[in-house]
């Protein structure tokens, strides 16, 4: 359950945007979370609600979470494949050269006025 700690970081990052853009009310925060980060969207949304309850500028803002699948590149044939409890290339059986996506954890955009 590291969602609460992630949301504390998120609240602080959104807060910076609120100040920078002089927002009175944030209505939506769009987050991209890779599968490998182990973030559970429902838990993240719940933590967001709890953490922003007493922050007027963020309270009630929708937290939209886009999950990115874990994708790796094969070290033998360079094909990209989705990791679904398999860590070798479905085409040639090679191992992973590097993870192409799935580790993301960033704020895409926020909406507010």
């Amino acid at each position: 359950m590291h969602e609460m700690a992630i949301v504390e970081n998120l609240v602080s990052a959104v807060g910076e945007q609120v100040v920078q853009h002089k927002l009175k009310q944030v209505t939506k925060v769009k987050v991209v979370a890779g599968e490998l980060t182990g973030v559970v969207p429902d838990v993240l949304r719940f933590c967001w609600q709890v953490c922003t309850e007493n922050i007027p500028a963020c309270s009630g803002a929708e937290l939209d979470i886009e999950q990115k699948p874990a994708v790796a590149r094969c070290r033998s044939c360079a094909a990209e494949f989705e990791m679904r409890h398999n860590f070798s290339c479905p085409r040639c059986g090679g191992g992973i050269e590097r993870v192409v996506s799935g580790k993301e954890l960033y704020i895409d955009y926020i909406e507010g006025e």
């Binding site: 990052a13 704020i107 926020i110 909406e111």
Partner: peptide, 14 residues
């Protein structure tokens, strides 16, 4: 108003 952020959430930790 939509504000493009593209910022790592874990920036404070990082």
């Amino acid at each position: 108003m939509e504000i493009k952020v593209l910022k790592n959430i874990m920036e404070r930790n990082e």
